[in-house]
Design a binder for these strands. Structure first.
Lengths: 159, 159
DNA sequence: GGCAGTGACTGCGCAAGGCAGTGACTGACT
DNA sequence: AGTCAGTCACTGCCTTGCGCAGTCACTGCC
């Protein structure tokens, strides 16, 4: 590996955590602007992605209890983010539906970032795009795997 | 732009939020493993990065009040993450110092991801690395700028 | 037709953070 | 030298978000 290549790799390794951090802060800023908690925003993303509309499943994806999700839904209804609708097939269940006007607002807030990404990607050639996609997808897999498979460390706690 | 290039760009645009999301979950998992809140972990990162060691400045970077940061410091001392030390130059102030063994533990938890990044970057050529670094650094700037400069949207709230 | 399982909801408690002060200390200005 | 506004960390008090454990309604299976 050539020296300047090494420098570039180092630069990338340094830029990565900054990128992740600033992105996280951006999400927090969007949540604040919408007068909504990060958890509510996260739930809204799941609803927008169409991943699921079942409370129990959404609670699992958000890594919280069903009880806590009930209150979350209460707040989201109060804030006009989503609404409950009965599930005709099973009277125990219900479906969570996002409210369109707030979703539009969300898209509006994300528009600048989406525009940046679109323009930036348009200037890359095939090899560069391939590298980027590979890095992102493999990085996603690595993060998911690492999340569930963290090394054991000793720590003294909880007093 | 050629069709397969367009597809690649779309793939990248889809992979990006997934990457960000899985990374955020990874951080949450690390925090949980260390029996520490995400905020404490965030603060630990700042300390490790050597950004600052002043409570007021750290509170600003974490976007919280100085009062809340005092409790945060209390918890971090209880959890043996950091310690307070007097500032000899100004007796009102103090400096926050990370505790080395817990920092080592942190590094250990991040090791798998760091290894992945290092190996992945080693397989990229100059043009690819340049594109990646550019995307990350400009993306960081864009996110920071977008955070402080979100478009105004109408929303009815707070009942 | 009973019965274990599932789904959403509720009371209670805890932890985290904001707000509005308080006292110690500083540097600048007279 | 004395004063005084500004800064710094810290402290009650309060709100909010979430977990936990239990409750009730409903389902499908035997």
């Amino acid at each position: 590996m050539l020296p300047d290549q090494r420098e570039l790799a180092t630069a990338a390794a340094l830029a990565l955590p900054r990128f992740v951090g600033s992105t996280a802060l951006f999400h927090a800023a969007v949540a604040e602007r919408m007068a909504v908690t990060p958890t509510e925003l996260h739930c809204l993303h799941l609803l927008h992605g169409g991943v699921s509309d079942s409370p129990t499943e959404l609670a699992r994806l958000l890594r919280m209890s069903t009880g806590a999700f009930t209150r979350l839904l209460d707040r989201m209804e109060r804030h006009r983010l989503a609404e409950r609708a009965p599930d005709p097939a099973d009277r125990r269940r219900l479906v969570v539906r996002p409210l369109p006007d707030r979703m539009a607002e969300l898209a509006e807030l994300y528009a600048p970032m989406a525009r940046f990404v679109g323009e930036r990607l348009a200037h890359l050639d095939r090899r560069q795009l391939t590298a980027l996609v590979g890095f992102l997808t493999d990085g996603t897999a690595a993060a998911e795997q690492a999340s569930g498979n963290l090394p054991n460390v000793t720590h003294a706690i909880t007093s």
